[in-house]
Design a protein around this nucleic acid. Structure first.
Ligand SMILES: [Mn+2]
Ligand SMILES: [Mn+2]
Ligand SMILES: [Zn+2]
Ligand SMILES: [Zn+2]
Lengths: 144, 144
DNA sequence: CCGATGATTGAAATTGATTATCATGTTCTC
DNA sequence: GAGAACATGATAATCAATTTCAATCATCGG
């Protein structure tokens, strides 16, 4: 079951926050987007269907989506702006990034995650979240 | 054998760049520092022993140290400024970060690194570098 | 439905880290 | 020691992201 505007609305209601036209517009476009998108890009995309929504509100709504556990912000090396993607704990993944062409591949490695947990425990830590990015050359860039 | 100013000087000579009082001052203080330090912090520290070195030059020298493979820049979540630490490929490590008190523990997990390589190859990537950070609660913060 | 209350909005200003400019000073080679 | 190239540092510029603030809106109780 994919997350939708309803989930954001529930979060807002629980927090005593308000459901607005703008928040619904941003959330709608966000949930309809796959992959990684920056606040600016989302702003442009939202503006097409719902003109008049400010960039500030896009930033603010993305922050709410993060707080609600519905979005995850990523900050890849050499990229100056952060990008967002739908959060779905069950579908957690990490990234392979080509340092030449920028191609990003998502992957999942349960064994690594398990070893991360173990390593953390060995140092007295409990893990809430983690970030793992592998930088290198993709197939096409390596043979080119 | 720890890296020193001599290594930076060699890099500079090879590149036809110049060895200056300021670069030596920044490098000296940098190599004398353990752990993670921001450009601002390094600037303050350098200023004590070698007044008159500008912040701009600290940034520029840190960039040279990175290019020379003598420093590594880290950018931990929620920290707006980057921090630098001595680079030593042989001593590569990753980080455990307490989200409550900010404590950082360095660790090394060769098995994970090996699995990272394998996962990357499975997707046609060759790995040049990677970033792995585990966020959670340290011992004291968890029991508090 | 109405009005009060507090939250939200968006334009504009601000922040904060980092980088670019540029006039002046320094290094290194011959 | 002269000269060409490079480096420095004060200042300005960038740029994503946040803050401000007056105007607008959503929600709740009556
Ligand atoms: Mn992703
Ligand atoms: Mn470290
Ligand atoms: Zn590539
Ligand atoms: Zn802690």
């Amino acid at each position: 079951m994919n997350k939708t505007i309803a989930d954001l609305n529930k979060y807002l209601a629980d927090k005593g926050l308000k459901i607005t036209r703008q928040r619904e517009a941003v959330a709608q476009v966000f949930f309809d987007t796959d992959g990684h998108i920056s606040a600016e890009e989302l702003y442009v995309k939202v503006s097409r269907s719902y003109p008049g929504v400010g960039l500030t509100t896009v930033y603010r709504t993305l922050k709410l989506l993060k707080e609600a556990g519905l979005a995850k912000e990523r900050r890849f090396a050499e990229d100056s702006q952060g990008v967002f993607e739908k959060e779905d704990t069950a579908r957690h993944h990490d990234h392979l990034i080509c340092t030449r062409c920028g191609k990003i591949v998502e992957f999942k490695e349960p064994l690594i995650e398990k070893l991360q947990e173990e390593a953390a425990h060995r140092h007295g830590f409990s893990v809430e979240d983690h970030k793992m990015e592998l930088y290198g050359l993709c197939n096409s860039c390596r043979t080119a």
